[in-house]
């Protein structure tokens, strides 16, 4: 066993050494400007995520969605013996949540829409939208908010976002059309998917306990 581990370790070190030694030919990587120009973006990172490595991004999103399904199932299995007493809500929290909510949503949308031009994109926008929903939950109370938001609709929206992302990806890959419009659409869909996933987690965690 020890000999095997030693061989594995030596092999790993040898591979690393080979990798940096320059024995393997380095593939010619196009410059960032070329990639960005080819996909109709100015942010090279966005061009890579939604263009060159689209498949990778797609499956990352699927991993995310599956993890959310796991969270839902896990929390559904729980049987709370005795709920905790709810936390008294403070007017300060409520007011500041009310004040911050609008700007955060607007900023998240801006980040999603302008993701191909500047820093941003679907992932941070989705996380920001999730934070906004969290603030909304803090301001209104999880129970009231989840009574207003129809949960199955939300789930269908999530699955719809995944299907739309798949369709968009397929279209992009099959037709080979490129342009900023596709990038904006993909960013918005990713933001929607991430935000709904974050909301599902926060809501399930919070409501299985009583209140935020």
């Amino acid at each position: 066993m020890k000999a095997l581990a030693a061989v594995a370790l030596l092999g790993l070190v040898a591979l690393l050494a080979l990798g940096v030694s320059g024995v393997f030919p380095r593939p010619a990587v196009p410059s960032g400007e070329d990639i960005a120009a080819a996909w109709g973006a100015e942010n090279v990172v966005a061009a890579i995520i939604l263009g060159v490595r689209l498949w990778d991004t797609l499956f990352e999103i699927l991993v995310y969605a599956m993890t959310m399904v796991g969270v839902k199932l896990g929390l559904r299995l729980l049987r709370w013996e005795r709920p905790l007493p709810p936390v008294a809500e403070t007017p300060l929290l409520r007011r500041s949540a009310d004040l911050l909510l609008g700007p955060i949503v607007v900023f998240a949308l801006y980040v999603a829409v302008s993701g191909h031009l500047g820093p941003g994109g679907g992932f941070p926008a989705g996380a920001l939208l999730g934070t906004a929903l969290l603030l909304l939950a803090l301001a209104k109370g999880v129970e009231r908010l989840s009574a207003e938001i129809h949960e199955p609709t939300l789930e269908w929206a999530e699955y719809g976002a995944i299907v739309a992302i798949l369709a968009l990806t397929g279209a992009l890959l099959l037709v080979g059309r490129r342009g900023s419009a596709h990038l904006i659409a993909a960013n918005l869909l990713i933001a929607l998917e991430v935000a709904i996933g974050a909301w599902v987690v926060l809501h399930r965690f919070a409501s299985s306990r009583g209140e935020v």
Partner: peptide, 19 residues
Amino acid sequence: APDVALTQAAVGFGLVTFI
């Protein structure tokens, strides 16, 4: 790396801390 910074701030400070 402004993209990474934005994502890290939104996820790491907001969502992760809260869960």
